[in-house]
Amino acid sequence: MSLARTARLSRGVTHATGAIVSIVLLIWTLLPIYNIIRVSMQAKEEVLSTSVVPLEPTLIAFQTVYNQSYWLLKSFWRQMGNSFYIGVTVALLTLTIGTLTSFVIGRMRIRSGWMLTNAALLTYTIPMSFLAIPFYSIMGKYGLTNNPIAVIAVEVTFATPYAIFIFQQYGASIPMELDEAARIDGASPPQIFFRVYLPLMAPALVAIGTYALLLSWNEYLYAFLLLSGGNVVTVPVALGKFLAGDEAPWNLLMAAAIIYAIPPLIIYYAFRRKMTGGLTMGGVKG
């Protein structure tokens, strides 16, 4: 066998192996998503069948969710609104606190500001779930249990350290000369913040805003712990109630999950380019 032929064979084997691994990974990744879609398009009686495709595909489950015509979905759109309210508020508060903090530490050069950044990041060494009871206690003391503000406060607490870190790293790439020029022109710190700092931080703002929104959008532990009534809970908590009964309507559960996943998907794809730029910015600081 000639060398060229051996090399061709070797390349072929490499490509084939790569293709096989890729196909396996693709199936592995997409199978759960396919299953969610499959179940959502099956009738209740068909869900447990062994067929890999819906025998009689139907959108009735989506219609039921849309019309809130199943008893556990009676408040679906309201709960969706709760998720939006919490998610958007968390995003806005995280951006506000993160940008102000990074501005004060990075641009106003507050003394020992690095300690604040490091202390904030240190909170990530404690898993979120470990702080559930202390948070529950604090919110109880301040009368915030069963109030969305409690979940917002918790999520903002967990999102801001990362936000401060990213904003500081990103802010370091903005020349200080711009601030100095503005100051010479008579700009006050708030004016520098709003007119110079924030516009230049746009990519990082998009990235962190999306991150904070998704963090609270998918939150379950704190949402169920701190919220109780059917009108204040978020969609993940409401969907958890599907599994309490003796006959879980899996098709409705999957349809509701798909509808709930649409807004984050839209947000992700709408801002994908800017988000990637913002998230990687922290890693290229010289």
Binding site: A132, Y136, S137, G140, T145
Partner: peptide, 14 residues
């Protein structure tokens, strides 16, 4: 969920 919340609540008094 209720048992988790009760355990938390009984520790915190809420």
């Amino acid at each position: 969920d209720m048992i988790t919340k009760l355990i938390a609540g009984m520790q915190t008094g809420d």
